[in-house]
């Protein structure tokens, strides 16, 4: 990479950091318990809107792995989720009615919060419908992973988004949780390198095959780097798909070996998806005039279902590793 390209990325990073400072002013503290954060806590950063049905599972999942504090941004929820979170002892909550889109889909808000509260901490930036799963998560707490990353000199840890879906029609909101289990696509992912930022670009899964099979380039990106040992100089560029400085994006091995990586179990399709798709389509607060949500709405009207005879039923991280979706890498 040429010096001028490096300099351009440096300027870009500064731009996102300044923007984060400006956008942070849109956040109004509802419950600020950040004084309770202790130096070696792992932190969760998240922004949400009307996710009440998912919040309890979300908190439980991350508390179980030993997260110390949650820093959440409520983007205009009206389903009581804000009040629920404000009452939690380990949650700091901010609220904003400002445009999600103008905060670059929440990235600016979370960059701003991470800059103030995340420095020196392992920070996990996830949506309420994303459940982080890493190798050995059933026997080792998150602290074991971050200690190992520290000892190995690693600053970031990738986890691709894996869409889970029910068996049967989408849109059974309020139905009993996964009576037939949670299913996923095991092997239909496209991968390429992003030459500028050095991250991988991964697409595929049920959303690509159901809603974007004729326009694959529009299919949502599944690559994510949610866990970062934060430094105030870092910035997420777009969602948690990539960061600057771009060394943080080099989470894959190019010389044949496997680097350790996890998975974000994505429960978006598991329940309430049609309602959410309709609502987001009306709000037009998503990327490219919510083209993604337009495609969802069309597909849902035709009654497309993700489950097929080739679907795999989720059994745990060892299954995902066996299928080649994640890896322990050198961690034994």
């Amino acid at each position: 990479m040429q010096p001028w390209q490096r300099y351009r990325l440096r300027l870009e990073r500064k731009r996102w950091r300044l923007r984060a400072l400006r956008k942070r002013r849109e956040l109004e503290p509802v419950a600020d318990r950040t004084a309770g954060i202790v130096p070696r806590d792992a932190l969760v950063f998240s922004t949400f809107r009307n996710e009440m049905p998912r919040l309890a599972e979300f908190l439980a999942h991350y508390r179980d792995m030993g997260v110390g504090h949650f820093l959440m941004v409520d983007n205009g929820s009206d389903d009581g989720g804000g009040a629920y979170l404000a009452a939690q002892p380990d949650v700091s909550l901010w609220r904003t009615e400002a445009s999600y889109k103008r905060a670059r889909f929440g990235t600016d808000w979370l960059n701003g919060l991470a800059r103030r509260h995340g420095h020196g901490h392992w920070c996990l930036t996830v949506d309420p419908d994303e459940l982080f799963v890493y190798p050995f998560h059933d026997s080792r707490p998150l602290r074991a992973l971050t200690d190992w990353l520290d000892a190995s000199g690693l600053r970031s840890f990738p986890a691709m988004l894996l869409d889970l879906y029910p068996k049967g029609a989408l849109g059974t909101d309020g139905a009993a949780p996964d009576p037939e289990g949670r299913w996923f696509d095991a092997g239909n992912y496209a991968i390429s390198r992003n030459p500028v930022y050095g991250n991988l670009w991964i697409q595929g899964g049920p959303r690509a095959r159901l809603f974007f099979s004729d326009r694959p380039e529009r299919a949502p990106a599944l690559n994510k780097i949610p866990l970062v040992r934060w430094h105030r100089a870092y910035a997420y560029v777009s969602s948690t798909h990539m960061l600057l400085p771009r060394g943080l994006n080099r989470t894959y091995d190019e010389w044949g070996g496997e680097k350790a990586c996890g998975v974000l179990l994505h429960t978006k399709l598991m329940s309430g998806f049609p309602e959410k798709a309709r609502e987001e389509l009306e709000r037009r607060q998503h990327f490219a005039a919510s083209a993604e949500y337009r495609a969802y709405a069309e597909g849902l009207e035709e009654g497309r279902e993700p489950w097929c005879a080739q679907s795999e039923r989720y059994e745990g991280w060892r299954q995902l590793e066996e299928l080649g979706l994640m890896s322990r890498g050198g961690w034994a």
């Binding site: 990738p158 986890a159 691709m160 992912y189 991968i191 390198r193 991988l200 991964i202 690559n223 989470t251 894959y252 091995d253 190019e254 010389w255 044949g256 070996g257 496997e258 680097k259 350790a260 990586c261 080649g324 979706l325 994640m326 890896s327 322990r328 890498g329 050198g330 961690w331 034994a332």
Partner: peptide, 27 residues
Amino acid sequence: AFAAARLRRTRGRPGLAMQGRLPRPGW
């Protein structure tokens, strides 16, 4: 377990491309 971890980290599983492994041509 240690030997398997070493092999996984240095050689990987043949034919696998994923978020932690994308070998350059020839590797």
